[in-house]
């Protein structure tokens, strides 16, 4: 198999960066921006068995069917300017009557028992409500449910693949990328979408040269910081969020920085 032709977008730098990866990893990284297999290897080195209990927990937690969430139907008396709307949430078709004022965030939280997405500000100023709609990260607090007709919505509850945590989720645990956890669903949805944006070659305000053709990007810490700045974390887990994303995006283990002295 001719790897050059398989991955025409790969630069020499990126090849160097990924030189310790297997060809399968490379392909997966090109397809998805990360390597599951390689990532699990990193985790098993770092976790020293402690994580095993978590992964066991993950299976138990996620083995429950991903809540074919119940729809709390409203009566017409409860709805002014009702709009009937159909869209997919985490792969399931939903059809419901909503008040025209109802946001996607409130619809998912109050009508579908999917309370993972959080209301931090309700005005587009914190990112806690971030969801992925048709592959793009958006703010569900500034999205009307009525405007989601025909769209495909992914919430934090739909990020894991069956019983497998998404590598971003696993990396968030490994790097302690949260404290209170309230912003975490939004951070993770944001980070997952960010991987695709980088793969798609999207630039940011801190990118040195923007007047170049698109190609998959390996993100520096500063690039990740800027691209994640729409997700406020009041506990201050930013360095750990950056570490988790960097590890997944690069496929290379990122060191934690703490030391004991004295």
């Amino acid at each position: 198999m001719n790897q050059e032709n398989e991955n025409p977008d790969l630069t020499e730098d990126e090849k160097k960066l990924f030189k310790d990866l297997m060809p399968e990893d490379l392909k997966e990284i090109m397809d998805t921006g990360f390597s599951r297999r390689h990532f699990l290897k990193l985790i098993s080195i770092a976790g020293t068995g402690v994580l095993a209990s978590h992964l066991l927990g993950a299976e138990q937690l996620l083995a429950r069917p991903l809540a074919q969430p119940s729809l709390n139907e409203l009566t017409t008396a409860q709805v002014e300017n009702g709009v009937r709307v159909s869209f997919k949430v985490n792969g399931f078709n939903k059809n419901l009557l909503v008040d025209s004022r109802m946001t996607l965030l409130d619809t998912v939280r109050e009508r579908m028992e999917l309370t993972g997405a959080k209301k931090g500000c309700d005005h587009g100023q914190c990112g806690a409500c971030t969801m992925i709609v048709d592959g793009k990260r958006i703010l569900s607090c500034l999205t009307l449910a009525a405007s989601c007709e025909g769209k495909s919505v992914t919430t934090i509850e739909g990020i894991a693949n069956g019983t497998d945590l998404h590598p971003i989720q696993a990396a968030f645990i490994k790097h302690d990328s949260f404290q209170c956890g309230y912003c975490t669903p939004g951070q993770i949805c944001s980070a997952v979408a960010l991987l695709a944006e980088a793969k798609n070659g999207e630039v940011s305000y801190v990118t040195d040269q923007v007047n170049v053709p698109k190609k998959p990007l390996q993100l520096s810490e500063n690039e990740i910081r800027e691209r994640m700045s729409g997700n406020i974390c009041r506990c201050g887990a930013y360095p750990n969020i950056v570490a988790a994303i960097r590890e997944v995006q690069s496929g290379k283990s990122v060191e934690q920085k703490w030391n004991f002295a004295g």
Partner: peptide
């Protein structure tokens, strides 16, 4: 703004 807002 932010990436999310610019997507919308």
């Amino acid at each position: 703004a932010s990436a999310q807002i610019r997507n919308m």
